[in-house]
Design a protein around this nucleic acid. Structure first.
Lengths: 212, 212
DNA sequence: AGCATAAATAATAA
DNA sequence: TTATTATTTATGCT
């Protein structure tokens, strides 16, 4: 009845997880003999180590795709590896009953862990022996200069706000036109609308909270 | 003190905009720093260009509502844009006192101008490359506009994930049912499962590499 | 120093 | 694969 009725190659991977995970009733969060807290800790630590090397998820992913093969492409890495692993562990530790809903099984995490650990260890080695070594290892330079924050003129803001009021999601054409008209880079205008939408959403959220 | 890094010729038009429109008493018809004569000229030229493409106002309006989004909806837009803009400029130049009664302010006109310019430019391009291209551009062009990204509620995600765990390939009926239950479009739910399967596949790919 | 918000990054829907 | 949303960071200004 509740058996997995799929025939994708992925099923092999999930096959060995029983229908009901064995959940340890203690606070140690052990599922199927795997310590979720441990995995969670690892994921957290991994992020910290990544950040202290000044690396983005993307960079790690790209580097991994070089050393480990093309399976690690772009943003896939981020969601599939570090983040989901982290979330999975976190969720599982909070609500063990939710376990089955997670994107990554504890076993998966357990398997991936050593790969990440190994890679990170080497990256840190290189880092210690010189920034250029790390750069070489990564293949991409870790940090580029942040763009200088632009300040909009009041006039520009007025126009942007007026536009935003009519349409919070301007088309590409509109953005280009606005950028041209105002004399800012197109990307700057695009980002402005992103941030503006975000601000609006925050405001709405806050107001609804406040009323409630 | 701090100068801004913009260099737009157009932004100068908006230099200062007090609450009350500043009406220049000279013959140059400048209101709120916007040159109405210039707009009038633009509107005239736009009409000419439109006619030489053999297009009606309605057609332009409909096309704009497609490319620029619902903010420019209906044929009303067209008259609100092209015609009234033209009239506004014309009227304003004749009777500046009437200006405020118009549906379109000089500022609006100024803002809309580049959109129209852009659109017309593209239309003319298409026209040059063949009548059918123009027709295609004008007609019910398959929405170049990307659908707004929907964000799922945590509750919806929980249900979806639970379902996915049981069956990664829900049938059409199941998808419909889920969509109805959750109050999302069917297509949105369908895509969610596509993306989810993809994510799973990525994880599996990486793991097989990692284990090897 | 702290605030407002532009830019950058991460997550993920299309 | 692309592009949008969500979150985080950090900068220009007061």
């Amino acid at each position: 009845g509740t058996q997995h009725s799929r025939s994708s190659p992925t099923s092999d991977f999930l096959a060995d997880s029983p229908n009901q995970p064995t959940i340890n009733q203690t606070n140690s969060n052990v599922v199927d003999g795997i310590n979720l807290d441990e995995i969670k800790e690892f994921a957290k630590a991994f992020k910290l180590r990544r950040l202290s090397l000044g690396l983005t998820q993307t960079q790690v992913g790209q580097a991994l795709s070089i050393t480990e093969g093309p399976a690690y492409s772009q943003s896939a890495i981020c969601s599939a590896l570090a983040t989901q692993m982290y979330c999975a562990a976190q969720l599982a530790s909070q609500h063990q009953a939710m376990f089955e809903k997670l994107d990554i099984t504890p076993k998966s995490a357990q398997k991936i862990k050593p790969v990440l650990e190994m890679w990170m260890k080497e990256a840190e080695e290189r880092y210690k022996s010189g920034q250029n070594h790390l750069t070489e290892f990564i293949g991409v330079e870790p940090s580029k200069k942040r763009k200088r924050r632009t300040s909009f003129t009041p006039q520009a803001l007025e126009l942007l706000n007026a536009h935003f009021e009519r349409n919070t999601h301007p088309s590409g054409t509109e953005i280009t036109a606005l950028a041209h008209q105002l004399g800012y880079e197109r990307e700057v205008i695009r980002i402005w609308f992103c941030n503006k939408r975000q601000a609006l959403k925050n405001t709405v959220r806050m107001m609804s909270k406040g009323v409630a």
